[in-house]
């Protein structure tokens, strides 16, 4: 296993002696049961206002997405297995599955025609965090735990972080004007407590801890799942060489990221900032040349 995967990353650059080991979430979606205890615990602990009340018709997901008033979001994906799927064995089982698919019977048990994927999404606390980079006020900052937090007494609601986040995590709160997102329970971390969602999760689908230790645990879990036949099981945001240099909150998924509403190749926009500034500078120079040409390129 590579050194960088296991190393516990702290933030000595900004905190020196006071830097803590980098803390994060490992969300193992293979054991998520979609109970939404994480959503409720998060709302209660962080006193988040009520969000949309109603039915979306998208399986059991009425939370819809992450936003100012939803810092944990449980996604529900119902996948219809192909009738001729060979996994699952006997002729009787295959016939049962075909019948279930034809009859439209929906069940949470795999092997009966429908596969149900559930995953609790959260702010990724990116190593390269676009929100933090673009924030003009410094309201967004990196904590001593390596997490990314918005200071509510500084945010002026400029909204720049909202379209900058490659995961669509941040949003402006209606009637308040500021942006809000998961703090990885910064207040609880300071008191050596685990975040509310992780504590509430009944199946330990949400695991909290030092990032290096979590990554190691995730590797073993991935190996075990693949051995058990979950061919599409994959770790998401667990590596340092992706477009955000890895994340503090990473996931074990059972299908491609986009199936859960996650971008397959998120990139911190700062990576292209050099070319952006270069183009803006060149365009400013071109504008100057145009002005010169207009004023001096003909009669007065």
């Amino acid at each position: 296993m590579s050194e960088s995967t296991l190393k516990t990353i702290a933030w000595p650059d900004s905190y020196g002696e006071r830097a803590k080991p980098r803390m994060g979430f490992f969300t193992d979606t293979s054991v998520c049961i979609g109970c939404k205890a994480c959503e409720v615990a998060c709302k209660e602990w962080n006193r988040i206002p009520m969000s949309m009340q109603g039915f979306t018709g998208h399986s059991y997901d009425n939370t819809i997405d992450l936003g100012a008033d939803t810092w944990r979001h449980v996604a529900f994906v119902e996948q219809r297995l192909p009738v001729d799927a060979t996994e699952g064995g006997s002729l009787v089982q295959l016939a049962e599955r075909a019948q279930a698919v034809d009859g439209g019977v929906q069940t949470y048990q795999e092997g009966e025609g429908i596969r149900w994927l559930m995953a609790s999404d959260v702010c990724k606390h990116c190593t390269d965090a676009a929100c933090l980079d673009v924030c003009p006020t410094g309201a967004l900052f990196r904590t001593e735990f390596g997490t990314v937090v918005v200071q509510e007494d500084i945010c002026n609601g400029c909204g720049y972080c909202v379209p900058a986040c490659p995961f669509g995590v941040l949003d402006q709160r209606e009637g308040d004007g500021r942006v809000w997102k998961c703090t990885l329970c910064y207040d609880r971390l300071k008191d050596d407590k685990e975040p509310a969602c992780a504590q509430a999760c009944p199946t330990n689908s949400i695991q909290f801890g030092e990032l290096g230790e979590l990554r190691e645990r995730a590797e073993h879990r991935l190996a075990r799942l693949q051995e058990a036949g979950q061919a599409k099981a994959q770790l998401y945001l667990a590596d340092e060489d992706d477009g955000i240099h890895g994340a503090g909150a990473f996931f074990l998924l059972l299908d491609e990221p986009e199936v859960y509403g996650l971008p397959p190749d998120p990139v911190d926009t700062r990576r292209d900032l050099g070319s952006v500034w270069a183009a803006a500078g060149a365009a400013a120079a071109a504008l100057g040349a145009g002005l010169l040409a207009a004023v001096f390129g003909g009669r007065r």
């Binding site: 979306t56 998208h58 399986s59 997901d61 819809i64 997405d65 936003g67 996604a75 994906v77 909204g159 909202v162 379209p163 986040c165 490659p166 995961f167 669509g168 995590v169 941040l170 949003d171 402006q172 986009e258 199936v259 859960y260 509403g261 996650l262 971008p263």
Partner: peptide
């Protein structure tokens, strides 16, 4: 996609 939901947020 996930129920056709956006992946990133629209500007505010």
């Amino acid at each position: 996609s996930y129920h056709g939901q956006p992946v990133i947020k629209q500007p505010v």
